[in-house]
Simulated assay, not measured.
Amino acid sequence: MSTPPPLREIIAEYGLRADKSFGQHFLLDLNLTGKIASLCGDVSGVTIIEVGPGPGGLTRPLLALAPERLIAVEMDARFIPALEATADYYPTPFEMIEGDALKVDEAALTGGGPAVIASNLPYNVGTPLLIKWLKAEPVFWQRLVLMFQKEVAERVVAPAGAKAYGRLAILTAAVASARIVLNAPARAFTPPPKVDSAVVVIDPLPAAQRFTDLAALEVVTESAFGQRRKTLRKSLGIAAGKAGTSAETLLEAAGIDPGARAETIPPEGFFALAKAWRAARG
């Protein structure tokens, strides 16, 4: 395996610049990208899917892991020639998909085999992409290694009672366990964003431990956290109305104090509430 040119030379050769409209910030720190790639774990026989590779800062160490293959999904066509040229330096089979990751069927790309998704996610689509992968049925990935804005990363892993606790933490907890493993200061990126970032590792729970009715869970959490300062007796009114019942009836069925506020209820409480909502709706 020969060594590709330095990343900055590739960027200069192909005239690449970060596009703010795509939320792009290039990660050029080889030490950091190497650490992120290593978080994928043992990838022998595994397809790695990288979303938004840009000029290829993370792509290189992912290719060096020698997975079964690497599939890169990139919406910005400017980067494709540079990515394909870089991949030529590695023996790992490489497939380039030009398109919007929000519309790509990753499960179909893997052909049913094991997959890891690794990405320095564009800031403007990080949360909807995570929700898309959490709602995948069946769960096709065995690990997600994702870079978010630090504020979003904290929302993914927040426990009940924490300031960042809300819908995203509950949806994540329904399907997986999540932890922040690396912090990335703004200066590690080119151009530097206004905020720091963090890498979250997300592993799916065993199938028997997952809460699968995410549609109901989204309804009750949207209602509960839509008015965070109010008690659940009041904030759950919208969700209760959709089920043709009262908030008090739902809360009683779930065993939750109507005077409590949403941020104090652990994910298991919301799972019970989603079950009660589903039962009431019929």
Rank of each mutant, 00 (worst) to 15 (best):
Y123S: 15
V116W: 00
A12Q: 13
V104G: 08
A169L: 03
P61L: 05
P191H: 04
G54I: 05
V46G: 02
A178K: 02
F79C: 02
R228Q: 04
T190V: 15
I202M: 05
V156F: 04
E13V: 10
K163A: 13
L28M: 11
F22Q: 13
I170F: 12
A274L: 07
A274S: 06
R167M: 08
A101M: 11
A12L: 14
Q149P: 08
L39I: 00
G259T: 05
H25C: 09
A173F: 03
L62S: 07
A260Q: 13
V43I: 09
A254T: 08
L32C: 04
Q24L: 10
G45M: 12
T264V: 14
Q24F: 01
I10E: 08
V116K: 00
G244K: 08
R187K: 12
L217Q: 00
Y90R: 06
G45Q: 06
E50T: 07
I256N: 05
A254L: 06
A247R: 03
M1P: 15
A262W: 03
A260C: 10
A239R: 12
S44L: 11
G269R: 14
A64V: 00
P206Y: 05
N124C: 05
P204M: 04
N120Q: 00
A247Y: 14
D203W: 11
P159V: 14
G255N: 14
A77L: 13
L70C: 05
K230V: 08
F189P: 01
A162C: 03
R278S: 12
R17V: 15
K242S: 14
S38G: 04
N183V: 11
P5K: 01
E13M: 06
S223M: 01
E248L: 13
A101T: 04
Y89C: 15
R143V: 09
A186T: 02
A82K: 11
G282K: 14
